[in-house]
Design a protein around this nucleic acid. Sequence first.
DNA 1: GTGAAAGCGCTAACAA
DNA 2: TTGTTAGCGCTTTCAC
Lengths: 344, 344
Amino acid sequence: MNHTGDARPRAVTIYDVARAAGVATSTASRALSNPGRVSERTRAHVAEVAERLGYVPNRMAQALPSGRTGLFALLVPDVTNPHHVGLIRGAEAQAAAAGHSIVLADGQEDAAIEAAHLRRLGSFVDGFLLVSPRGSADDLAPLLRRHPAAVFNRPLAGLPGVVADIDAASAQTVEHLAGLGHRALVYLRGPETSWADGERRRTLAAHAERHGVTFHAAGPHAPVLGSGPAAAEAGLATGATALVAFNDLIAIGVLQHLERAGVAVPGDVSVVGADDVFGASFCHPPLTTVTSPAEPAGRALVDLVTGTAPDDPVLPSVLVVRESTGPARSSRSPRGVPFGAANR
Amino acid sequence: MNHTGDARPRAVTIYDVARAAGVATSTASRALSNPGRVSERTRAHVAEVAERLGYVPNRMAQALPSGRTGLFALLVPDVTNPHHVGLIRGAEAQAAAAGHSIVLADGQEDAAIEAAHLRRLGSFVDGFLLVSPRGSADDLAPLLRRHPAAVFNRPLAGLPGVVADIDAASAQTVEHLAGLGHRALVYLRGPETSWADGERRRTLAAHAERHGVTFHAAGPHAPVLGSGPAAAEAGLATGATALVAFNDLIAIGVLQHLERAGVAVPGDVSVVGADDVFGASFCHPPLTTVTSPAEPAGRALVDLVTGTAPDDPVLPSVLVVRESTGPARSSRSPRGVPFGAANR
DNA sequence: GTGAAAGCGCTAACAA
DNA sequence: TTGTTAGCGCTTTCAC
């Protein structure tokens, strides 16, 4: 009656199949998982018996000798971040297509938790899929020695990986903003442990310089909606007319804060996000942002870890212009500072 | 150099530890995983040696005799749905806290894919966490015979589970709408295979009747943003002044369509969603919706499957009033039908 | 083409 | 308290 009860039926093993089919276990095994090394006649017979008995191979037992489980660990910095669901989706789909499965691990933006997961999962999985891991290269290396691994948005010596084309995205962002007349932009930083954060900052600064626009940076900030108020205030304080956030979560949080604070977007300041997460297209105003190749990246990670090299390790990331960016106000003063004061 | 290369170091086994410590393997095993049955002196010694050698138990090998892996399969109908990330989050957190891990499976709203996952994962995991499974009870039963399972939002004979308090949420929804003067509401249905959809419809209809408001239903609709236009039109066609959607995805899609179509919300019609997903609070207008106990449900599922009964199998779900609902227009005619015509 | 037997790494009787 | 030994279910040499 009660399926949670304890009286679960014993599973039918390959021994049962072999006995019922009147062959040796090795023959049954071959018939099932290595046909071609067995006569068609016995293959068919064993298959029929296995089917009839409802035989399902015990993957754990298969894994012991072979050492391979068909399981891959996907480690994300924060499952809660909608950006990462694209990664999860892509990885799950690609893995499932190859008959593999994904074990999900949430690093919670914490290098120690990350390491604990890698350690725990190590003896279970055939490989690691690391999404912008937060741990230091030195901490990560020993944990990854035992398995193939592939990394997204974090070049790690000796490990294959893919990254988003952050430079291209930054170029488009600055070009767009400069074209709208913005003379100063501020980058609202994400977590310090994020490689993408450093890249974004570096490339934004470089392109800003190229266009002669003043570059500021503020932060770090946790990559969550709740960072909005602090990030917005820090950004406004620089006097910049364009706020470029580490990701959409921060950007949307900024939008919400600005609305409450009576700062018009894009009338007073423009706001740009990153990742183009669910919600970016219908927040208020719809967010100009930079896409993230999340789903392709998820797929590429499983390809990489299973031995297929991607065509190009840098995945496209482009600017999507919506309504949170517009022409710069002719002039802006830093928050609380008299109009016209020097803006550094 | 290249960690994907083939020259991976052989893992240190418990035999290595035992030999190095000068004890029998069973002693080493006990010292590590069943202390108390071994002298403190040897326990410490073995532990020290294991540490020094960098011993990590092979979980697959541990699992073979014990039959338990510490892995639980979480099956969701669609990883892409932000509602489900709450479930994933809760389950992952609770599992991790108990030293367990979650294998994620995406049913893609398809009973066959769902079944395939259950079959594949069966020999790997200690139990199944099923989030509103789409398969029929008859299809599911044989797949769940071998393992404990717990279910969210779908009473399944013999299986423990938790459900959202859909009745309470519907009561609050209808009361809210009736209080605003709405005399007719339409429920924009979700997938036919969803138990929650049936419950929502049934309870909404019952409470509507109690308040003397006319009840319509339209659908089914796929639970995605893209269903918005069709759902909105079907809803408007009934002449109802309040559209209650199966979930927030459909509701937000409806909002977007209505805005494009020039129908004012809540001026012309009110819209209510369900789940309170990320984005519901900042779409335009912010969505009145019913919360889903997603994260608690995720936690409850792992508790249930590991043998802990929850205090109450029905988890609270409440109405959150935001700006997509407002006073009913004194009168409304079905789309395209002359004002004042009978509204069925 | 098929069978016998060893072994993957670990735990759990059973002995001592 | 500790050691010996037999599996867990499967694959895979190695013979025949």
